[in-house]
């Protein structure tokens, strides 16, 4: 089961500069564990004490996972996951 994961610039040191990598997992938590096996250290930058870090935003098919089931959000084949730092945006 392949899931595309888009990696923000700041975390590409873990992915040899790759903007996107593939991973597997039935949940976001499992996906991060899978990514960490091939890109050691990346999980700790995203997760702290079993929760997403405060300034890390993760989107499943563009929807913020904090409004789904957070780190336990279920994933399916061909889903895409985007990781982004929290920023001030909008027409401000």
């Amino acid at each position: 089961m392949a899931i595309e994961v888009r990696i923000p610039t700041i975390l590409r040191t873990y992915t040899d500069g790759a903007k996107a990598v593939e991973g597997n997992g039935a949940t976001l938590d499992a996906l991060f564990a899978d990514l960490d096996a091939r890109h050691p250290g990346i999980r700790a930058r995203l997760v702290d004490a079993g929760e997403l870090r405060r300034f890390v935003n993760v989107y499943l098919n563009d929807e913020d996972v904090r409004f789904l089931d957070g780190i336990n959000t279920a994933l399916g084949d061909n889903d895409n996951v985007t990781i982004l730092p929290a920023v001030a945006g909008g027409s401000v």
Partner: peptide
């Protein structure tokens, strides 16, 4: 935005507006 805007931001120094209260929203799309 594209990568240029996010740049090399440290993930520990993100920004969430003080006004933001997630409980008001039903969902949020990027």
């Amino acid at each position: 935005y594209d990568d240029l805007v996010y740049g090399l931001r440290n993930l520990d120094e993100g920004f969430v507006p003080e006004l933001y209260d997630a409980s008001v929203l039903s969902t949020r799309f990027s």
